[in-house]
Design a protein around this nucleic acid. Sequence first.
DNA 1: GGGCAGCGCAC
DNA 2: GTGCGC
DNA 3: GCCC
Length: 596
Amino acid sequence: MLLFQGQQFVILPNSEGSYLGYLTRLIEKNGGHLISSVEDETGSGLATIDSSTIVLLNSSFVDENFNLIQENFLLRELRPFNISLWNFIKENNLKCIDIKDISIFIKNKKFDLNLVQLVNIEGHSVFKLNDGVTTVQTIKSEGTNNSSDEKILESKSESESESESESESESESESESESESESESESESESESESESESETDIEIDVNRKTKGNNDRIVNPLAKLARKYKVEGDTFRARSYNLAILSIDKYTLPITSGIQAQKEIPNIGPSIAKKIQRILDTGTLPGLEQASEQFDSLQYFSTCHGVGSETAKRWNSLKLDSFKDVLEKFPNEFAVEWPILFGWSYYEDWQKKIPRSVCAKYLQIVEDELFLLDPDFKVELQGSFNRGLPECGDLDLLFYKPGCDDLNVLCRTIEEIAIRLYKKSFVKCFLQLTEQIEKVFGNQVRERLAKIRLTENKPKKFNLAPRIKKALLGVQLQEPISIEPHNEIVELKDNDKFMSLSNEDTSKYDYCRRMDFFICKWSELGSSRIHFTGSSEYNRWMRLKAIEKGMKMTQHGLFKDDRLLESFNEKKIFELLDIEYVEPQLRNQVNKRQKK
DNA sequence: GGGCAGCGCAC
DNA sequence: GTGCGC
DNA sequence: GCCC
């Protein structure tokens, strides 16, 4: 008797892919029947589906709590007739599981739904239209077809249902995890601020993860180490830990020994294996607590925009413990690096996550202004927004103009837009200066310098860039925000609060947000979109692929021997790299080297 | 033991 | 070249 | 830190 004999499955969404192909072959080899949902315009999938059919969901649409996420993206990938399929699934309450759980059945040589966790698809309704929020989403189809560069407005609002922080309760279904459900709470008291804003962390990790699965107690100390190495500037080591964590997260079986982990999980080598064993034995790692004072100091400083690990280490070794302290003893630190003053001023606001629905409002304001300046210009939200994350760390805007490769035009346009928006009080601060920007914003910098009494002896002469290819800004929406449950942030010390411009009263304005303007030549649209959409880890992976093929990939294109192969057509770049094209929302996951 | 993405901007 | 950020 |  074959494993899946007599069992019917349907895979959603219906995209092809090598991994998917592998799984389908696996299922069929084991006697399972797959309803074809791909390329099936006849609706026969709907005809053959029945209430015992198991729905296999792509892992990207399942969160750690086994809830369906990003249903709107799922729907977008379904063809029209498959929407009815989806509705059938919901109406008849078909059992849904994460597709990767297929491997659990194979491993256990048993098809038993009790081995896995069913995915909850409740709470999502097809085409729900709540609170009238419309989300602007850019369609990224590429090629010579210019009309595909238009934006469309979707009237689907985001599935906001992933409310954070209260769902601690699903772990008991993990069959053996109850016993440690309290022991982990002591090991990890602080929740981290930076989760998926790739501007802050190299790798996007949700440190506030809610699952308290078996492997979580292992992950938390490792995450601490990753953060420790990150603030110390050891980025490669920090990245290694983060990759290990992501691999552990993907590993669905319980980890019972360090050796096992090293053998079966990629990105775990001898050192981490040893630490895992230590955690399993003692529940923690030695040295995590002692190091924490230095860690706190480094983290405190480097959370500020413009302060990196080197500066943080220097200040820490000088026994400075607050920005005010730095100011009193080494005032020059701020006079030279004036952008740090704004990092200090917006220290708290800039750590707060931006909900998707709010992102669209920010885009709208820039879009409106851009249209007045030059209706042919385009602007798109890139970054984590484009990857469909429910909240973003900052806003990445890519500007371009069809047919225009003139850097001067492009540079001048973002500068002009930023200045106009500054005059409208939308832009709150610039983090670089040009001659034009200095005219409107210079006084504001001087005001900040005066605030720390640094203007008397030096009538500051700023360095002015001739032009800017990117603009780093602080922006603020002139409207109140809805209650925003934000992650815990690092708070400014009382000593340092006098500089703060962070928003205390959200009844009138949103928080100040970080917004970045980037430009790209029309001929480089595809490679720029890949670059700015990220994630940074995805970029790394792709660029490694390029290296393997003797090519080089940058935001300006794909090159071989310094000859441009492709830069305009996004899909062509994937093709040339032998990578299957994936939509932006699937570029959150890390593609990594596999352990053989 | 070398590589780990590659670039822009300020200094 | 270094530091920082994207 | 890990991978080759």
